[in-house]
């Protein structure tokens, strides 16, 4: 290493340059679809450190070269060296994103399906409710730190597509649900009965876009080990099917 880098300082600079080049390659080739922080495509989050179609660096490099047939991921003609830089940057996105899941995923699954009551609102595969966000591939979408925070403090970050609304119609009837779409004149939501409901705002007396999550905090409901297990289980959910 010393011979190649002619000193630690130069090595450090080379490493920085490599990372910098990886960023540039990322911005030139990946950012338009994947976004600055790698989470613009539904079901894909580079910050999670997990990739549906790749596990090793070699897999990732091959994936960048060949694309993924049947998806919007195109092949590239980047040379090997640039693909290596890009892989390095993709890996670094996870390192900067936070902690790894270290709990007992089997325990987490038990919590999820048992006393956590998570299926009451969430769906994994073909099980559970569609009222809350689908978690089938949450391990690809969120990193463990984010998942842990969501369990301890559900109000900390609520994605716009997961905001709930409370609607009171002019006839006095009320409706709650997760907002799917909204425009100047209408709102589309999925309600508690999993119905897809479209509402004309002209028929609405009161409309509240909730700033808090209907999900309770599990800070005092689960032990540290149980929360860690739950995080690990959620981080393991990587398939949308």
């Amino acid at each position: 290493m010393a011979l190649k880098c002619a000193g630690a300082l130069l090595c450090f600079s080379a490493a920085l340059m490599a990372q910098s080049s990886g960023v540039e390659l990322y911005r030139a080739n990946c950012l338009p679809c994947h976004g600055e922080d790698g989470q613009s495509i539904s079901g894909v989050d580079f910050r999670s450190g997990q990739f549906r179609h790749a596990s090793t660096d070699e897999d990732l490099s091959r994936l960048i070269r060949n694309g993924i047939p049947g998806t919007g991921m195109p092949p590239t003609n980047l040379p090997d060296a640039e693909r290596r830089l890009l892989v390095g940057y993709l890996r670094s996105m996870n390192r900067t994103a936070g902690a790894k899941a270290a709990g007992d995923a089997a325990l987490g699954k038990e919590i999820f399906e048992g006393k956590g009551g998570c299926y009451a609102c969430h769906r994994v595969g073909s099980k559970g409710s569609r009222v809350g966000p689908d978690l089938s591939a949450i391990g690809l979408q969120r990193n463990p730190a984010y998942l842990e925070q969501a369990i301890l403090d559900p109000n900390a970050t609520i994605a716009p597509r997961n905001r709930f609304v409370h609607v009171v119609m002019k006839d006095g009837s009320a409706l709650n649900g997760r907002r799917l779409n909204e425009d100047t004149h209408t709102i589309q939501l999925i309600d508690a009965k999993e119905r897809l409901v479209s509402i004309s705002k002209s028929e609405v007396r009161e409309y509240t876009l909730l700033t808090t999550s209907p999900m309770p905090s599990y800070r005092n409901r689960l032990s540290g080990a149980e929360i860690a297990g739950l995080v690990s289980y959620l981080a393991s959910l990587t398939e949308s099917q």
Binding site: G117, A120, C121, G177, A192, M215, P216
Partner: peptide, 9 residues
Amino acid sequence: MKIIWILLA
């Protein structure tokens, strides 16, 4: 993860 005000039954 229970939703407080939605009648899931």
